[in-house]
Design a protein around this nucleic acid. Structure first.
Lengths: 194, 194
DNA sequence: GTCGTGGGGTAGACACCGTCTACGCCAGCT
DNA sequence: AGCTGGCGTAGACGGTGTCTACCCCACGAC
């Protein structure tokens, strides 16, 4: 009994998460993760046949973290769907800005292409949350619900991406992304209630 | 007179462009570019002190290519600003889908962070074209012009990104991104004229 | 108790990468 | 004629991901 020593597999993922959060995507090398986890450079291979397998496991932690944050802020935002969508968007943008390295890792297309990152277990649950809320505020003349939700998600994602990339602050002259978030929500869902 | 032998610098960039278009971002190694350009692995250093300098030069070609395509399709779309915006969006999405590796390279944030990729010379000209058109169709109740243009660009970019990533087709059930493009334009600019 | 056996981890090798440095070559100027 | 400087080559170095051989030790069979 007492606290159990964390297994090597969990230590590797934890070290990778810590590393990508702290140092960014380029620091997440297999050997550096192994060093931080206190094992030899060959050890990860027992649990992750290839580098992208380990990276995918790290990215999954990122998706789980994001989903947990979204769920929490949505609950704190009260029952109004529009308020909940605002909270979701705010959380999405904050996550991308605060954990840029992780955000980049999560959406690396080579991880997805490797087949180790399954959409149905990572991003789709989050999309379903958004789609549910969107369906509650959708007006009859709007695009079909999945398209509307997809377009709004894409808008959120694009703001997160281009803002981090640096061009949106320069082009819009804004110092924070709040105006862009409100513009996106208003555009897709109609003007805010009040 | 007569055709001049292309300089090593131009050959390197051309080989890099060709490589990233054909094989994707991971194939654009310094040594492979040098091999394809027919020079030794040390030669690029004369013209590009570091790898990211060369990558930045390649990315600039991508931006120039995209800008040229946009300019051409906009002209072919006629004088109506809404039609021109549709053409711009269509071109943006087509470019991202057809040249995924180049599109990823262009928006790699480490290239921007290296200081070799200057926003004012790459993406801002394109943004200005979009902002001009947006200003012509903006309604009084819309967000301020720069914010509106920025939000629309972000929406385009997000669609391009998430579509290529694979989650939007799965989540929306669509087989092409046309519905998303129309939804984005309608949301930000109001319903299409007819 | 002794012997196999197999999972988990180490350590070394390999090819490739980006960067650095020393070295040739050759055109052009003094 | 001789020097000089730009251009390109070639080798070295440390780092990376992957592969392979090996070791150790817990565990089951007999």
């Amino acid at each position: 009994m007492g606290e159990e020593e964390a297994g090597v597999r969990a230590r590797l993922v934890a070290a990778g998460v810590d590393l990508v959060l702290r140092e960014g995507q380029s620091a997440v090398s297999l050997r550096e993760i192994a060093r931080r986890a206190g094992v030899s450079h060959g050890a990860p291979r027992r649990y992750f046949p290839t580098h992208v397998d380990l990276l995918s496991a790290i990215a999954r932690e990122g998706f789980a973290d994001l989903a947990a944050r979204v769920e929490q802020t949505i609950r704190a935002a009260g029952p109004d769907p529009r308020g909940r969508l605002t909270a979701l968007g705010r959380t999405y943008l904050d996550f991308a800005a605060a954990h840029r390295g992780m955000f980049e890792l999560m959406f690396r297309h080579d991880l997805l292409a490797s087949g180790r990152l399954h959409l149905r277990e990572t991003s789709l649950p989050l999309f379903d949350v958004l789609a549910d809320l969107v369906a509650q505020v959708r007006r009859p003349t709007d695009a079909p619900a999945p398209v509307l939700a997809g377009a709004l998600w894409a808008n959120l994602h694009g703001i997160a991406q281009l803002w981090a990339w640096g061009s949106l602050p320069l082009a819009t002259g804004a110092t924070d992304d709040d105006a862009l978030l409100r513009a996106a929500l208003d555009a897709h869902l109609g003007p805010a209630p009040h």
